[in-house]
Design a protein around this nucleic acid. Structure first.
Lengths: 239, 239
DNA sequence: CGTGCTTTTGAAAATCATCAAGTATAGTGG
DNA sequence: CCACTATACTTGATGATTTTCAAAAGCACG
């Protein structure tokens, strides 16, 4: 006998993705309240993205918004000769795809097994008309990213390699609700491309920070901030 | 006999600033239509800012939004030891002060005689509730700035000095509705701090571009793009 | 017509990149 | 389960672009 019951959790695509979403309370989705959630859910297409797979390509027509619900993605731009600048890492809760232009201004690729929620750009635009709270939320998100971008410009334009790496580790700390133990899901190359350095310089700098007892490195992806105050001074350019 | 007539143009502060404003059709103010203009005008405080005077200081409580209506301002961040990163130049029409935080994330200073319009943050917030079109406009502004910021990160993290200067000149071109003649109201130091270089490197690089016939320099503040395509290739990293 | 500031030019130094190679780690197939 | 291979990370030596230090030239202003 075939019964019709609500399935709890692990629903297939499209059924009831938002209610059980890890990013439900974060990001822009929190602007929509529970009783309107179905309308948001109707637009959301949960999509797994394996490590190394890209889901946004710079220059492609911007047809979707994305919300990262699990894992981490790197956002980057390329020069014709292959030089790469990672402009940010998107952790769970990050909303992607804001742009007035009709094409994406950057590429996005998973650096670990990742889950994203895909929204049709035009349909979400229409939904926004009914939920001004969500629009304001988007403005807040954009404003915050703008502030972060300016901070990153300061780093790229004016900080030394040591200061950049220290700044990066500290930013990671506040990120993951972590104490002094932080995880680096991305490869050294990605860190280098984020900090405007080469892999070798990142590696050497981290080794040096370790030898100076500012950090410990149980493994390349695992860092312990041994002297956070020292790192803070370094990151601020006071050493 | 004292007559009551509308005064055309050059109204004193507070009287009817928006109608005759040079930035009226640009920026976020264009989102408000003529009959609602008075409500916007009631909040606007036009303020002259002489060259070198700063009107936003990083870290200060963010009590106002600003709209540049004439002239040019530089936006910048400082490190404790005085290193400076200019994060952008605000020309007429630029809206400033977007931030969720309660304090400014950057400083702003006029680089030529400038006029700004000052708005109380809280009062403009309330006005936004009645003009969703303005809020959407702000989102568009923020989105565009985000795209520009990412482009600047690519420049700062991955381009050579030559490529940076070429990119800068080309960006200036599209900016001022200029043909091949562009003006640089800001000092070399500001350009250097914007491009993450030293004054000396900027100067040397421009001299070299001149000797290679890519640009002409009638005066330090006046540049003619003699070979825009060559510059474009350079800026894209193809040389 | 100084005086002070901006811009330009020159020489030396330094940080970081490049080139090269070794070590560690993870994934794969026998 | 282990060896093998590919990839990531680290370390070392050399080199180059850009910075730093120094000073001359050009301009604006009083």
């Amino acid at each position: 006998m075939t019964t019709m019951r609500a399935r709890p959790l692990s629903a297939p695509h499209g059924t009831e993705p938002c209610g059980s979403c890890g990013a439900r309370r974060a990001s822009v989705c929190a602007a929509i309240d529970d009783r309107d959630l179905e309308r948001l859910a109707a637009l959301a297409v949960p999509t797994p993205v394996p490590t190394g797979r890209s889901f946004i390509t710079e220059g492609d027509p911007a047809e979707h918004f994305f919300n990262v619900t699990q894992g981490t993605a790197k956002l980057f731009k390329l020069l014709p000769d292959g030089r790469r600048q990672v402009t940010g890492f998107a952790a769970a809760g990050t909303f992607l795809g804001l742009a007035v232009s009709s094409s994406y201004a950057f590429s996005a690729e998973a650096v670990e097994p990742t889950q994203v929620c895909r929204f049709s750009r035009t349909r979400l635009r229409h939904l926004l008309d009914d939920f001004p709270a969500m629009e304001r939320r988007l403005l807040d998100v954009a404003s915050n990213e703008l502030v972060a971008a300016q901070e990153q410009m300061l780093l790229l334009g004016r900080k030394t390699a040591r200061e950049r790496v220290a700044s990066f580790l500290l930013a990671r700390q506040s990120c993951a609700a972590a104490g002094r133990h932080i995880l680096l899901p991305m490869a050294r190359t990605d860190i280098a491309d984020y900090l405007g350095l080469t892999v070798e310089t990142v590696s050497r700098t981290m080794t040096r920070l370790r030898k100076e007892r500012l950090i410990e490195m149980p493994s390349p992806t695992e860092i312990v901030l041994r002297n956070p105050d020292g790192l803070r001074e370094l990151a601020a350019g006071l050493c």
